[in-house]
Design a protein around this nucleic acid. Sequence first.
DNA 1: TATTGTTATACTCTATAACTATA
DNA 2: TATAGTTATAGAGTATAACAATA
Lengths: 165, 165
Amino acid sequence: MAEQVPYEELMRQLTAVGVVRRDLARILPHECPAGSVGVLIALKTHGDLRMSKLTELLSVDMSVTSRHVAHVAERGWVERLPDPDDKRSRILHLTDAGRDAITVLSRRTAARLAERLSDWDEADVRRLTQLMARLRDSFDDARASTDPPHSPQHELTPTPANATS
Amino acid sequence: MAEQVPYEELMRQLTAVGVVRRDLARILPHECPAGSVGVLIALKTHGDLRMSKLTELLSVDMSVTSRHVAHVAERGWVERLPDPDDKRSRILHLTDAGRDAITVLSRRTAARLAERLSDWDEADVRRLTQLMARLRDSFDDARASTDPPHSPQHELTPTPANATS
DNA sequence: TATTGTTATACTCTATAACTATA
DNA sequence: TATAGTTATAGAGTATAACAATA
C-alpha cells in the first residue's frame, strides 16, 4: 500500500470508537458488563465452546476469559460442563436464562443504535460493519503469525532524526 | 431506518475494535499510554486548548482529561499556561518535546498499521476512517442533545416476553 | 514435560463526588 | 450561586506470572 495513507486519521478514529462503546455500555445492566456480553454473544453465535476456543474468538488472554466466564456462570447464564475428552477442559454452554438475557440486551442495544443512527441508511451501516470486521481480521491474522514473542516497547526520548528545535 | 438492520453484528464488530486498539497500544512506550497520545494528537491538531475544550474533543469527563494532561505535563510534552481572560482556566500548549514525541509515535503507529493492513487498498482505509468518524459524530451529537441526565440502567431479569422455556 | 484453566496482582481508562479557586 | 479544574475513590478490562490438575 502507498506510503501516504492517512494512518494518523484512522488512528484517531479508532480511539474515537471509545465514545461509542462507552455510550452503549451505559445502557447495560450493572449485572452484565461488556465483558459478559462478549461471552454470551460468542456462545450464542458459535454454540458450545471450550475456554481455549472462546479465548481465541475474543482475542484476549485466557485469564480474562476465565474471569468473564466466572461472572456469567455465577449468574446462571452459562454452565461449565466437563469435557469427556479432556478432564482439564470445560465446555461452556449457554443456558436458557443466558439466552433470555441476550435477547433483552440485543433489543436494548438495537434500540439505542437505531436512535443514534437514525439518519444513517442501512447500506452505510452494513459497509461500516463489514470494514470493521475486515479490520479485525487483518489484526487477528497478523497477531497469529508474527506476534508470538512480544513487542519490546522501546524508549520514546531518543528522537535525533525529528528534533525540530 | 428499517427495523431489520444488523445492529447485533455492528455491536459485535464494535467490541472487536478492542483487538485493534490493544494491538496498537502494545507498541506504545510505557511513558506514553493511549490516554496521553489522545491529548497530544488533539493539541497537535487543534492548537492550544483549554481543559474544557479538550475535554469536549475527547468526549470524556474532565477529571479524565485532567489526569491525562497531568501525565503529559509531568513529562514536559505539554505546558499549562495561565489564561489571561479567566484565572480559573488554563491554556494547554504542546511543547517542542511534545511535538517530537508525537512524531515518533505517529511513525511507529503508521508502520504497524501499514504492516497490519498491507493487503488493503487506500480507498478502503479512507472509507473506513470516514465511516468511523461519522459514527462518532452521530453518538456525540445524540449525547449532547438527549443525554444530559443519565440512563437509569434497568434490571435484566424481568423478561416475560422472551421466555423461551 | 506440556497444556488447560484459575487466581493473584498490577496497570490503564473511566466516571462520580468532593473540593479549591475563581467568576 | 455557578463554573474551571483538580483530586480521591471506585469499578471495569486487560496482561503477566504463579499455580493446580490433567495429558
